[in-house]
């Protein structure tokens, strides 16, 4: 029975995408997120310049692109972590440009980070509890009266325990998050994001720095999100993973969306091949490109350092 519904959700998602064009900005039947003309510049460098993109509700959409394509910067714009220089986007029809990050999350659009942000000096359980919304005890004055928030805290704890069970972290409940392995932190971050109760989950490189043994279980969790009715948008480098779990792929290069399409065919698209191999591989790199590459290399280095620490 369970297997059937799984297929049904996947089938439903794929059916929606079946007849779509593979042009950038192609309209979707039921978009949860609609993005228009988002631009972000750093000095002379245009990091993001996305004309039009729609994300289909109830699907798993992958956002791929070569290093320095502006994927993370794009994520930052959408989730309110950085201010776009121009552009607008709507989530469930509500305009979201200029909305601060915490309001974006409250609306049901929750992100994770490329470099995991597990709060290492809080316990796993405290990390989870933090994700719950509308907590009475988070108000300064009510915090002073434990009776006013104890009941809600128990409910939150119960919900957190269920999620920890599912993500196989229940045994680590009272450990400091800092003692977890890289993969476990990714799991914790995803579980914590679910505590918010999101409609759209945005994962920034969920597989980066994860031990291959854990990859399958992580993939399973991402697929599960769709089964529960959530929409997933994720940035990833690993093409096998993209092919395995995504229903639709959006390709970015040099800040712009250059192609969209189903995972099986998108990799044979000439525009994508050019972007990855570099249509300009015979032309010398411009100063900006060189700088961007430096930047990316630095981010990766930092990621490695962070992972080791």
């Amino acid at each position: 029975m369970h297997a059937d519904t799984t297929t049904a959700k996947k089938e439903a998602a794929l059916a929606v995408f079946a007849g779509l064009e593979t042009e950038p900005g192609v309209p979707k039947p039921d978009p949860i997120l609609v993005i228009d003309k988002v631009v972000r510049r750093f000095g002379g460098l245009t990091a993001v310049d996305v004309d039009h993109v729609e994300i289909q509700r109830g699907s798993i959409t992958a956002l791929i692109g070569p290093n320095g394509a502006g994927k993370t910067t794009f994520f930052n714009q959408l989730t309110g972590f950085d201010t776009a220089d121009a552009g607008s986007w709507t989530f469930n029809g509500k305009p979201m440009n200029g909305v601060p990050a915490h309001r974006v999350a409250r609306q049901g659009m929750v992100r994770t980070f490329q470099l995991t942000k597990a709060l290492s000096k809080l316990t796993v359980m405290e990390n989870m509890r933090l994700g719950a919304q509308n907590q009475r005890g988070e108000n300064f004055f009510r915090a002073l009266i434990p009776g006013s928030w104890r009941g809600q805290e128990d409910e939150i704890t119960e919900r957190a325990e269920e999620l920890l069970e599912r993500f196989k972290l229940a045994a680590k409940r009272d450990d400091f998050a800092g003692s977890l392995s890289g993969g476990q932190r990714k799991l914790l971050e995803m579980a914590r994001a679910l505590m918010v109760g999101p409609e759209l989950v945005m994962l920034d490189e969920p597989m980066a720095g994860v031990n291959p043994a854990l990859t399958q279980s992580l993939l399973g969790h991402v697929k599960n999100l769709r089964e529960e009715g959530m929409t997933v948008l994720f940035v990833e480098h690993d093409m096998d993973m993209v092919r395995d779990i995504s229903d639709w792929v959006i390709v970015m290069a040099q800040g712009a969306v250059i192609a969209e399409g189903p995972p099986d065919t998108i990799m044979s698209d000439q525009r994508v091949i050019d972007a990855y191999l570099g249509a300009h591989h015979d032309a010398p790199m411009s100063v900006e490109e060189a700088e961007e590459q430096l930047h990316e290399a630095e981010a990766e280095l930092e990621a490695e350092i962070e992972e080791k620490a």
């Binding site: 000095g43 994520f75 950085d82």
Partner: peptide, 14 residues
Amino acid sequence: FRPQGILGRRERIG
């Protein structure tokens, strides 16, 4: 108004 200073530049998050 300009936390990166006169000649500084902004940094990226994430």
